[in-house]
């Protein structure tokens, strides 16, 4: 699913290093939905939460919720499962008192 294209050419250059450039920017999907949709200011970080050797997509947000979308095994571009709450060791949802 593409929403426009944006080629990110970078103005600055690094001495003795190639100028970094990024390709088309695309929304990330978590299961059938867009990652972070319905939340406010989703903040992603990749981390292998379940220890299966694949980094999962962890999202925080403005309201203090933290979710995990597990990376699904398989070839090709990364695919992620649905956003599930990250649980504390007592089985309750981890909730940061964000505001």
């Amino acid at each position: 699913m593409l929403f426009g294209t944006l080629t990110l050419a970078l103005a600055a250059s690094l001495a003795q290093q190639p100028t970094p450039s990024f390709g088309t920017i695309e929304p990330v999907k978590a299961d059938a939905l867009l990652a972070g949709i319905g939340r406010r200011y989703p903040s992603p970080v990749m981390h292998d939460v379940d220890g299966d050797g694949l980094a999962d997509l962890v999202l925080g947000d403005l309201y203090g919720a933290v979710t995990v979308s597990k990376r699904l095994a398989g070839e090709g571009p990364p695919r992620f499962g649905p956003e599930m709450p990250l649980l504390a060791s007592d089985g309750t949802e981890l909730v940061f008192n964000n505001w």
């Binding site: 944006l6 990110l8 190639p18 100028t19 970094p20 450039s21 990024f22 390709g23 088309t24 920017i25 695309e26 929304p27 990330v28 867009l34 990652a35 972070g36 949709i37 319905g38 939340r39 406010r40 200011y41 989703p42 992603p44 997509l57 999202l59 947000d61």
Partner: peptide, 14 residues
């Protein structure tokens, strides 16, 4: 206003 996560792959030629 919409909120979502996006990705852009690094295409730097090394």
């Amino acid at each position: 206003e919409y909120h979502a996560v996006f990705v852009a792959l690094n295409e730097t030629r090394r």
